[in-house]
Write a protein that binds this DNA or RNA. Structure first.
Length: 671
DNA sequence: TCGTCCGGCGTTTTT
DNA sequence: CGCCGGACGA
């Protein structure tokens, strides 16, 4: 049995405010998710609101799953509200309504790989002696899309800088890209949101429909919403103002991805009659950790003032270790982890957080040497692997023949003698008579007697038929068998070990398909399965499988640490040029977001926070002098500095013991 | 079509 | 310093 009485005073106010706009400013560790889930449960159980009328939006699948799980526990078997990510919700809407925007229902979702391929074409067509970086163009385009600036509007917008070559290239590519995407009947991640906005604008009756469907809307991590998401929320609440947003402006760290902190800072002004509730009681950290975090973040001017406090014990002062260099830094962190382990601390309660992935290698080395098992969060997603992308592309091309990117991808994979020459020929043909590449294949392959191509078309037809007969899992197996994909891999990777890795990836995909068939939330069609894979993030698969790796240490960037907590946190590289990062300093940008990043790191720690900084660091093959981060200067009384380049932090006996240990280690090595 | 060599670059990345 | 991507050659 759950009761709102289990919440603190402020949390209860938040949970009991059901109607009208509500802004919950939830400090780090203030029981945000708890408040939100209790609020939802109480809406269903106590206010008798139909769960179908409640929508909770998150940014990550993991957060969505977690929230759903917790609400379910509170509701015990009763139907629970829809909890999904912005992207999943909008994709669901587009699948119903995209015809209103002139797309076909079988549209393909392009990921960054596909976008890059298309952008390569665009840049090749943009004749210029200067070369442009595809990724840069792509991210510039994405930020335009996130600001709702169309290719037509770009040149006359404030974002167009006439003295910058890139802007001209971007203008051309943005046009090219958008035209092709439309022709291919494809949409990208930004479009999932952007087209939903367009849909709501051009067809207000659709916005009305969904607004009436979802009478109550909740948004998690509101500080990270971008203008598109804000606009979608306006559509979703157009018939009512029952919107509850939860967030912490001090933890807004995704500006580079288009998040606009103004959304949360301005919420009260945009939604009239907003009730504001501040959650400042922290249930996570010691008072000493909170004191430091409060001091650090206070330096930011544009923020909703909050001061975290706790009933928890005072704890020790956070420590700042000064180390010789990056290797030494990793070494003493690993040593301390061993000591913590000896004291009975579980590795899963310890994390190493860093600003940049470039900081990882010394830590991996030292952890391995100390025999400490660890996992690195982040990195490649399942669908980012070439093999998975190939299989996805097969499904894409048979569901949407207009999708040229996927078609070109699978054309000669596995190798079947259709090279660049053939492709060029048909691209010309398709240009000449204004037909899609696939249509041109069908029209001329037989006439031209391109045997390999004819065989491919037969394969395509066969797969098409089978895709309608078989479920996701059976189809995947058929596809792999029919294309001799495993044999292709064996030819490609000579080493047995490599082949094994790829096989495992494919098996993961197949078992994921099997699980998808068993779930009940989404109709288990092949297309839906692959859309879900594309929307999945790097940790989803493991999460879905319940594959939480046991007792291992966690390494991750500060960005990925948001929302998590650990008893012991090592915040490494607390140096100028990491925090704030060199690039931010160089661009003369506002460093407040960097400070927030630091703040996020500090507030992850429950029991003790270790910060480390090097006096010198090897970067790009050169030894560079380093200085402590400006974020720590000025309030030295909130943390304790230890010079770890000497033995001064040890008592005499400890120092003696250390030297003896060192000597015997040395002897062991010499043996 | 594949392999090799050179040059440029090196922050974060919820979908 | 080391990686990745593009160019170019066999």
């Amino acid at each position: 049995m759950f009761s709102l009485e289990d919440l603190n005073q402020k949390q209860q106010i938040a949970a009991r405010t059901i109607n009208g706009p509500l802004l919950i400013l939830a400090g780090a560790g203030s029981g945000k998710t708890r408040t939100l889930t209790y609020r939802m449960a109480s809406m269903v159980k106590e206010h008798r609101i139909d769960p179908k009328a409640i929508l909770a939006l998150t940014f990550t699948n993991k957060a969505a799953l977690e929230m759903k799980k917790r609400v379910r526990q509170l509701l015990k078997g009763r139907k629970s509200p829809q909890t999904s990510t912005f992207h999943a919700l909008c994709l669901q809407i587009l699948k119903e309504e995209i015809h209103l925007l002139g797309y076909q229902k079988n549209f393909t979702l392009y990921d960054q790989n596909d976008q890059m391929s298309l952008m390569r074409d665009a840049l090749n067509n943009f004749k210029s002696q200067k070369t442009f970086d595809r990724g840069t163009i792509l991210s510039m385009m994405s930020s335009l899309k996130n600001k709702l600036i169309s290719p037509e509007q770009y040149a006359s917008s404030e974002h167009f800088d006439e003295s910058n070559d890139y802007c001209y290239a971007l203008e051309y590519c943005y046009y090219f890209y958008s035209e092709k995407m439309r022709y291919f009947n494809a949409i990208d991640f930004d479009d999932i949101l952007g087209l939903t906005v367009q849909l709501f604008e051009k067809h207000p009756e659709v916005a009305t429909k969904y607004s009436q469907k979802f009478e109550y809307v909740l948004v998690d991590e509101y500080q990270d919403t971008n203008p598109l998401q804000f606009s979608i929320l306006q559509g979703l609440t157009s018939t009512h103002n029952n919107i509850c947003v939860v967030g912490d402006d001090d933890q807004s760290i995704y500006k580079f991805r288009g998040a606009d902190i103004e959304n949360i800072l301005n919420f009260e002004n945009l939604y009239e009659g907003t009730k504001v509730v501040k959650l400042e009681e922290n249930y996570r950290s010691t008072q000493n950790i909170l004191n430091l975090s409060n001091e650090v973040i206070k330096k930011n001017t544009k923020r909703k003032a909050k001061t975290l406090w706790t009933h928890n014990e005072k704890g020790e002062l956070p420590s700042l270790w000064e180390t010789l260099d990056d290797v030494h830094e990793a070494q003493i962190v690993a040593d301390e982890v061993v000591k913590l382990q000896e004291r009975g601390v579980a590795l899963s309660d310890i994390a190493i957080l860093y600003r940049s992935n470039t900081q990882i290698p010394p830590f991996e080395d030292q952890l391995r040497m100390s025999l400490i098992p660890y996992k690195i969060i982040g990195g490649k997603k399942l669908y980012d692997r070439k093999e998975i992308k190939d299989l996805i592309a097969y499904v894409a091309t048979i569901t949407n023949p207009l999708d040229e990117i996927s078609l070109r991808r699978v054309l000669n994979v596995p190798t079947r003698g259709i090279g660049n020459k053939t492709l060029e020929k048909y691209l010309e043909i398709s240009k000449g008579n204004n037909k899609s590449l696939f249509a041109s294949f069908n029209m001329f392959a037989y006439e031209q007697e391109d045997k390999h191509l004819i065989k491919f078309l037969e394969l395509w037809q066969d797969l098409k038929v089978k895709s309608q007969e078989l479920g996701p899992k059976a189809f995947m197996e058929y596809l792999i068998e029919k294309t001799q994909y495993i044999e292709f891999i064996k030819r490609f990777y000579k080493e047995e070990k490599q082949v094994e890795i790829r096989k495992n990836l494919i098996n993961t995909l197949i078992s994921s398909a099997e699980r998808f068939e068993q779930q009940k939330e989404i109709t288990p069609t092949l297309k839906n399965f692959f859309d879900k894979i594309l929307l999945a993030d790097s940790q989803d698969i493991a999460y879905e499988k319940g594959e939480e790796q046991g007792n291992v240490l966690t390494l991750m960037t500060l960005h990925s640490s948001k929302g998590l907590e650990f008893d012991y946190v090592f915040l490494v590289g607390t140096e100028e040029e990491f925090l704030p990062h060199k690039r931010t300093i160089k661009m003369g940008e506002d460093i407040s977001e960097e400070r927030r990043l630091f703040y996020v790191g500090i507030t992850r720690a429950r029991k003790h926070l270790y910060m480390t900084r090097c006096k010198q660091r090897r970067l790009y093959g050169k030894d560079v002098k380093r200085h402590v981060t400006r974020f720590l200067t000025g309030f030295e009384e909130y943390y304790s500095i230890q010079d770890r380049t000497t033995l001064n932090h040890l008592s005499e006996e400890e120092a003696e013991a250390y030297k003896t240990q060192l000597f015997s280690d040395l002897m062991n090595i010499l043996d």
